[in-house]
């Protein structure tokens, strides 16, 4: 049936029309985009101090010169992010679940979870990094790592764990109670209901805010520079202080942007896939 169908004259006309409308939209989009960006570019480059700023921040020679040092430092940021992120996810989910626990004997756990989120969301991350990176090794305890980088990572995990836990919690609480009721009705235990019904749905729902925190964390790995750890920012500042040129800071910024964009696209794609699979036709 479908094979023998030929679109009617009217339908073909409609398709031509749609295509024309699409082309018109494309022209409008392109023109507006060009005007806006060219205007912005002209506006910035025509400011009185632009030449000096360009020399200080956008200098090709210094960009090339500092590139290797910044790259080496950036590797520290990448490592910190790659290691901290999974730990944060696990910790945050555990904390969120602990806050949701209803069993009587788990009350102390709930209290700890609440205290943890309250305290660590309240402390500025930069303070936490400095406190742990300098303070923990100074304790002189036997058997704990003394690397400042390690403790800076721990600080990031603790700080972000508290944020992400709240993201997970909001996701869990957004799942309609009827889902728990039907899990109960099937005889699932509360833990099973969480594990198989609530959390999978909650995680999907919070992917966008999670990504937001990931991107934020990627950037906040730069805070370890304040504890004297030789990351990209520290390397760039080092170079700037010796050469009186701040182009390396812009190079670092570019590195961070390049790192975060693929993550954003990946999340968009994941999200779209979930929507297509679960909400096919549901409008």
């Amino acid at each position: 049936m479908a094979a023998t169908w030929t679109p009617s004259e009217r339908e073909l006309e409609r398709r031509r029309l749609r295509q024309r409308l699409r082309r018109r939209d494309l022209v409008v989009a392109t023109t507006v985009t060009l005007v806006v960006f060219v205007g912005l570019g002209l506006g910035i480059t025509s400011t009185p101090g632009w030449d000096a700023v360009q020399e200080l921040f956008f200098n090709g020679f210094h960009a090339r010169e500092s590139f290797d040092a910044v790259l080496e430092g950036f590797w520290v940021n990448v490592k910190l992010f790659m290691i901290c992120e999974p730990v944060i996810l696990a910790l945050a989910l555990a904390v969120a679940l602990a806050r949701q626990a209803r069993a009587a004997w788990l009350v102390p756990l709930r209290i700890v979870a609440v205290l943890y989120t309250d305290v660590f969301r309240g402390i500025p991350t930069i303070l936490l990094v400095i406190l742990l990176a300098f303070g923990m090794p100074a304790l002189g305890l036997q058997g704990i790592p003394i690397s400042a980088t390690f403790w800076a990572g721990v600080a990031l995990v603790l700080s972000y764990g508290a944020y992400v836990a709240e993201v997970f919690r909001s996701g869990i609480e957004s799942i309609h109670p009827s889902q728990l009721a039907s899990a109960d009705a099937l005889g699932l235990s509360r833990a099973q209901a969480m594990r198989h019904v609530v959390v999978p749905q909650a995680v999907r729902r919070v992917v966008p805010p999670l990504l937001n925190d990931f991107v934020s964390l990627q950037k906040d790995t730069a805070l370890v520079a304040s504890a004297g750890i030789l990351d990209a920012v520290f390397a760039a500042r080092n170079y700037g202080n010796f050469n009186f040129n701040y182009t390396p800071l812009v190079v670092v910024a570019c590195f961070f942007v390049v790192m975060t964009v693929p993550l954003a696209r990946l999340t968009d794609w994941l999200q779209r896939r979930y929507v297509e699979r679960e909400r096919a036709g549901a409008r």
Partner: peptide, 16 residues
Amino acid sequence: DDGEIRFEGSEISDPR
């Protein structure tokens, strides 16, 4: 995908 829908005398399946 094809055909026409007219509402109150004017075609509403037109893309415009």
